[in-house]
Design a binder for these strands. Structure first.
Lengths: 205, 205
DNA sequence: AAAAACATTGGTCTGAAGGACAATACAGGT
DNA sequence: ACCTGTATTGTCCTTCAGACCAATGTTTTT
């Protein structure tokens, strides 16, 4: 896993260099050189007056590197900026002058699929979200309203990943009947197969 | 770093045992035996009807072990419960039947100070908290981090509903190779078939 | 009552999916 | 140099999915 620091300071910051001596340091994002598949960690050094640059750079990275992990290190961290950055898909946000040890920890965390943020930010996220979490009554997909009752039952089970045989057993009908209902469901919903059906019913699209 | 599983099932779950063969498994929280300084990871197995138990246990752990990390593994994960658990200080929340590798990833993440949660939950946290209108930065599934680059590419296309033939064409490899990568992906993620893979990569857990 | 929609089941057939055996080439680390 | 992991491709085989050909009984609507 490769590290690329993007900072206006030539030579980066002391902590960065110490943490990742072999990392690349650049002042601007270079065009992709075909390493589209490798996972790269981008460390963006954020100045207070470069909101626009941050947005632009993050989007560029996401376009060019599908597997990239993006970290923002801010000179003056604040929660609003952190929220904004994470809404763009950044997986870690911290102080630019974090010690090398912390930077290494961050890398370990994000390279294993985790998210890194300060305890205060996390707390705030939770607080705000918890209060609004109540009204997420599970909305049944609108697609299901297009199906008959029996088709609904079969489609829901299929969308969970059950096989025709399993569906037949739990609904106490023949596998042949399951197929009939599924075929009808595909027809009505315009799904190509059970996988598309599952995607339709699980995503609210 | 010590692991303690607390589950009503004697012997825990298969995935847990595989991930941490040397962990302690208990059905209730035992009183503290002076290990106040060591960091312990508590894995709480959550049944749908044990909200009260969860709250009580978390608070007990936090009182007795100042350095503890608490993970909740839910039989039926849902965002409301996840938010609630994390508001109590839980640092990871996932499906109880997560494959062993995912569990190990979670441990790596949290033991380095990170937070582990499903992409949907994170997205929702950000969406709700952020004042800025969301662009949906495509959060790569945690599961994907278990796959090699090539497997990732294949798995992502398969999760969109493409056939092996279609995937082979756009990646410019043989259909046989697609199958090989997919089989490897199933193995790594513990998926039964491409539909389960799709559910894993598109949805929660 | 007649018509339409729904629920159920049958058989056949084609193609896709995925496992069970492989083999080869290449990169990186010990 | 050797071993491990990754990427690639091969053949054979079994199972499953879904389309297409039906039919019959029940329920609902017109």
């Amino acid at each position: 896993m490769q590290d690329i620091f993007i900072s206006p300071l030539s030579g980066g910051l002391a902590g960065w260099v110490e943490a990742f001596p072999h990392a690349k340091i650049a002042d601007i994002l270079k065009p992709n050189k075909s390493h589209a598949s490798e996972t790269i960690v981008f460390w963006l050094h954020m100045n207070a007056d470069r909101q626009e640059w941050l947005t632009k750079t993050i989007k560029q990275i996401q376009q060019q590197y599908t597997q990239a992990k993006i970290v923002v290190l801010a000179n003056s961290p604040n929660q609003a900026e952190a929220l904004y950055a994470m809404s763009l898909g950044v997986v870690a946000y911290s102080h630019a002058y974090s010690p090398a040890q912390v930077l290494r920890e961050m890398k370990t965390v994000i390279s294993h699929g985790g998210v890194w943020m300060g305890p205060d930010l996390l707390k705030r996220l939770i607080e705000v979200s918890s209060t609004l979490a109540g009204n997420q009554a599970e909305q049944v997909s609108q697609h299901l309203s297009l199906l008959t009752n029996r088709e609904k039952q079969v489609a829901i089970e299929a969308a969970k990943g059950l096989s025709n045989k399993e569906i037949a057993r739990i609904l106490d009908i023949t596998e042949r009947t399951v197929k009939a209902h599924l075929s009808a469901s595909f027809e009505r919903l315009g799904a190509k197969d059970r996988l598309h059906l599952a995607l339709m019913l699980n995503n609210k699209s």
